[in-house]
């Protein structure tokens, strides 16, 4: 088969990522296997070229784990990930090293994502030298160019991270990821730690770079407004599974999974009026070590029925690639349209 470059930059099929609880020496000697926590539990999706897929979900739902697995930082227990048609296997270090020039990550916490003992220039220079991005003699000039690309002045190169603000650090993290000229980026909550005005600067910068460099992006966040601003498509995770996926506009206008609807309703509005309503969703996110039977959202779902407790819901196609994993997805969508629908969102 002779195919041009596949349309999907990243394809994930039935991905499972597990963590093992640490074992004692006695357990090790007796060969007792540790308890397993499924942080990502059977997830499939693709990301098309030049697309930005937003990924939202509760804390602990497995977003970071998924993003890191895509880069081969965690090993897939089951399922497969391909990048530009090539499989990503965490255990194949050499294979990965070549691929990593094309895929990079920006981390959530600007305070721990830079080595405190290296200046900005050293951090960026190391990447350039190690991957032989440019001639040795041009490293200094290239560092200056990178800094400029992310809107920092070249004299920042001499600074240690401790002398930078959170927003500046996040820019350096972005420059480090861009240094190898990747075409796929995983952005793990890149603005969560920043205040709104710096956040707006970084989001604009990301948009510019995306258009300029033709990047494909997985954008992880828990703030819906930020995701809406950045993404073309959207995936919603709950407890290790994707519960809804589709075009961002479609999901924001017609969320069809009760959890997504809960998320939308729970977002605080910029309306200066003291709220007089109860919490949208009751109860806590269950532990991934004790996943509820049937639909894993049922203990908190306002629409839950007996079927939900007994059977895992199928993935319901709602047209145009919009899918929701709920027994009553269509009904949920109708209810949304009829009631809150256009009014609050």
């Amino acid at each position: 088969m002779t195919r041009a470059a596949p349309a999907a930059v990243v394809a994930v099929e039935d991905l499972v990522v597990e963590f093992r609880a640490s074992r004692s020496i006695a357990a090790l000697l007796r060969g007792i296997s540790a308890r397993r926590l499924r942080a990502v539990d059977g997830v499939s999706f693709t990301i098309a070229r030049h697309e930005t897929l937003g990924l939202v979900g509760e804390s602990g739902s497995g977003k970071t784990t998924l993003g890191r697995a895509l880069l081969g930082l965690y090993r897939a227990s089951e399922g497969r990930i391909t990048f530009e048609g090539a499989p990503i296997r965490a255990q194949k270090t050499r294979e990965l090293r070549a691929l990593r020039q094309h895929m990079q990550m920006v981390f959530q916490d600007p305070y721990s994502s830079l080595n405190p003992r290296m200046t900005v220039g050293q951090t960026l220079g190391e990447v350039l030298r190690f991957h032989a991005v440019c001639a040795k003699s041009e490293v200094v000039a290239e560092v200056a160019k990178l800094l400029e690309l992310v809107g920092l002045s070249a004299d920042m190169a001499a600074r240690y991270p401790s002398a930078l603000s959170g927003g500046q650090r996040q820019r350096v993290g972005l420059a480090r990821a861009l240094a190898v000229r990747p075409n796929f980026l995983v952005l793990d909550e890149p603005v969560a730690a920043l205040d709104v005005s710096i956040q707006a600067q970084i989001l604009n910068l990301l948009q510019d770079l995306r258009d300029e460099l033709g990047l494909t992006i997985l954008f992880i966040a828990h703030e819906l407004s930020v995701v809406r601003h950045m993404s073309t498509r959207l995936a919603v995770m709950y407890l290790g599974k994707i519960v809804e996926i589709g075009a961002a506009d479609a999901i924001f206008s017609a969320p069809s999974h009760p959890y997504t609807q809960g998320l939308m309703k729970a977002v605080p509005r910029l309306i200066p009026e003291r709220r007089h309503r109860e919490a949208v969703l009751k109860g806590d996110v269950p532990s991934p070590l004790a996943v509820p039977s049937g639909c894993r959202f049922h203990p908190r779902c306002p629409m839950a029925r007996d079927l939900c407790r007994a059977e895992t819901p199928p993935v319901v196609a709602l047209g145009d690639g919009h899918e929701a994993a709920c027994h009553f997805a269509e009904e949920a969508a109708r209810t949304w349209a009829a009631t809150s629908g256009g009014a609050t969102v």
Binding site: R68, F107, S112, L114, N115, G173
Partner: peptide, 22 residues
């Protein structure tokens, strides 16, 4: 588990460099 260590892995640095230099 600090992010800069993960970043070093993402950049494909060899493990010995990550441990001893970073």
């Amino acid at each position: 588990n600090k992010d800069y260590m993960l970043a070093a892995r993402t950049l494909g640095y060899p493990t010995s460099r990550i441990i001893f230099r970073h």
